[in-house]
Computed example of a mutant assay.
Amino acid sequence: LFWPLMVGASVVVAEPGGHRDPWYVASVVERCGVSVCHFVPSMLSVFVEALGESAQQQGSVGLGSLRQVFCSGEALGVGAVEGLRGLVPSVRVVNLYGPTEAAVDVTS
């Protein structure tokens, strides 16, 4: 929570329950110019699947500001990473999954 503030960035917090809606998350990324996100891998999969369908139909999903995505809390599958890179080819994905996510996240 404090990491962005230490370098002069802003923190964007989803409205209650908003983190469960891929379209809401995408709209916040676009509207606020979010450059770094954190996802639980299962939600990243839902996000990528929902937005991937839209990108195929419309060509763009408005995630151009996104530079880096952190994932932790459960195993991260290759499909989610590949799907995200299909939407945002230059995005850097950091997998923080490990023996205890708290220790891995804090160490990272």
Rank of each mutant, 00 (worst) to 15 (best):
V91P: 09
S42E: 14
Q58C: 09
V91Q: 06
V34S: 05
A50G: 11
P89A: 11
G59T: 10
V46D: 14
V78W: 02
A50T: 13
V69R: 01
C37H: 01
L51G: 06
L66T: 02
S35Y: 01
Q56N: 06
C71P: 05
E49M: 07
F47H: 09
V93D: 06
G73D: 06
G52D: 12
C32E: 15
G79H: 02
V69I: 11
N95C: 13
G64V: 04
G64N: 09
L96T: 10
G62F: 12
A55T: 00
S45M: 13
Q57N: 08
G73I: 04
C71F: 03
V69E: 09
L44Q: 07
S54Q: 15
L63D: 12
A55K: 12
L96D: 02
L44T: 08
G52T: 08
S72H: 04
A80M: 08
L66P: 04
A75P: 00
L51S: 05
E49W: 04
S54M: 14
E82A: 15
L44N: 02
G77W: 00
F47T: 10
V91A: 07
F70N: 08
V36S: 00
C71M: 04
C71I: 07
C37E: 11
A75F: 11
G77K: 02
L87S: 03
F47K: 00
S35A: 15
H38G: 14
G62C: 07
